[in-house]
């Protein structure tokens, strides 16, 4: 196991430890391919990666057009859950799938702590 993947594993372990988080994937922002993942069965990991990358890219076009620059945080709220995408270092994105009542405020605080420590 490489040093990089050890870091990702630790990061994913901490993210999935947050209450209400169902799974998390580190993905390549441009390719939409999985780099590392920690996700429960029943969810297509490659779908999370491909779709989160595509959504982040499309949202970025919009925020840039609005003069806001690329987003630091994207949240898709749906009827049965939440998909969050955050840009990471070296062209990666962290995608998080959460339950409907996920405490977004707490998630943000925790993610900030985790990302700063990485």
């Amino acid at each position: 196991m490489t040093a990089v993947s050890i870091n990702f594993d630790r990061l994913l372990g901490r993210v999935t430890g947050i209450r209400g988080v169902v799974g998390a994937v580190v993905l390549d922002a441009e390719d939409g391919l999985v780099i590392a993942e920690s996700i429960l069965g029943g969810i297509r990991v490659n779908a999370v990666a491909a779709l989160a990358a595509s959504m982040y890219r499309r949202v970025s076009h919009t925020t840039k057009a609005a003069g806001h620059g690329p987003p630091d945080f994207v949240q898709l709220q749906a009827e049965n859950g939440v998909l969050i995408a955050l840009p990471g270092s070296c062209g990666t994105i962290l995608a998080v799938i959460g339950e409907l009542d996920l405490n977004i405020g707490l998630v943000k605080i925790e993610l900030n702590k985790i990302l700063v420590r990485q």
Partner: peptide, 14 residues
């Protein structure tokens, strides 16, 4: 596709 049902909104922060 991620079985989250219909989407309601998206929020972005930058």
């Amino acid at each position: 596709m991620l079985k989250l049902g219909n989407w309601i909104w998206i929020t972005t922060e930058s």
